[in-house]
Amino acid sequence: MKHLKQAFALAALTMAMNASAQTELTVYTAVEAEDLKTYAKRFNEEHPDIRINWVRDSTGVITARLLAEKENPQADVVWGLAGTSLLLLKNEGMLQPYAPEGLDKLSPKFRDRDETPSWVGMDAWMAALCVNTIEAEKNNLPMPKSWQDLTKPVYQGHVVMPNPNSSGTGFLDVSAWLQLMGEDEGWTFMDGLHQNISRYTHSGSKPCKMAASGEAAIGVSFAFRGARLKEKGAPLELVFPEEGLGWEVEATAIVNGTDKLDAAQTLVDWSISRKAMEMYNEGYAIVGMPGVAQPVAHFPENAEALIIENDFSWAASNREAILTEWASRYDGKSEAK
């Protein structure tokens, strides 16, 4: 009899394990494809019962897909998407607020301000200049140190930056300049910068790629892409302008309506664990949990000190007006040469 009970218990346990082993989470992400394998592997080391099915694309495409799928969301979790995008989703009521384990250990910058946050941060990616050393030398360009340097006539036709209307990175830069310099001075700076811009691109990583392949001397982009390209052998110097850097949080959230809430919560819990933070730190200099970050190759050691006090809600509520103003000043016919 006792044996029978044990057998039953064992069977039940096996079944439970089998059942949980079959939990599959559809996770939408904009994280680099090459990193996804690592993310899943590290997570599965602790939670082998949850399988992650990634759907990855660029930030814009993933955000558009999530919004378009609003009526019938396909994703269970979003792991690794810009805070601005998650804010949009939150306003659409598409996120399930959840206070994950260890929330208190997160820096306040790295979480939704609500008491039960709709999203929790992983790491931050920050703006940077990708300068091609070979091209700079060829064209006798001094290494820029600040944003203001970029308005100097010597750089005319050598700077590439993302169009804020197409790219989140582009908007990040613009909103950071406006916050750093104040509105009037910010626009004056951009007027000056516009004179030197050889072109605006549709993607945020493109300026850095163009700098890497010598198509441009200086690309206004973000540090992560520059660091990766440098590792691949691009003759790049990453410059972090001294006035301060715009930045954006990459974060995790549960999609409202998921029928795999337990597994989703497990994933979000893990996503802000110390182990996860250490993992993020392999590619990013700033992570959500204070005190974890170790210096990362090609990044400045004092990264945290360089980033500005970014007011995301100000940026979000003024986005429309800023983009309209930007478009009327620099878009379309006003092609810079």
Binding site: G60, L67, L88, N163, N165
Partner: peptide, 8 residues
Amino acid sequence: YKQVIGQQ
């Protein structure tokens, strides 16, 4: 592309 992917 700008309207849909850039600004949703």
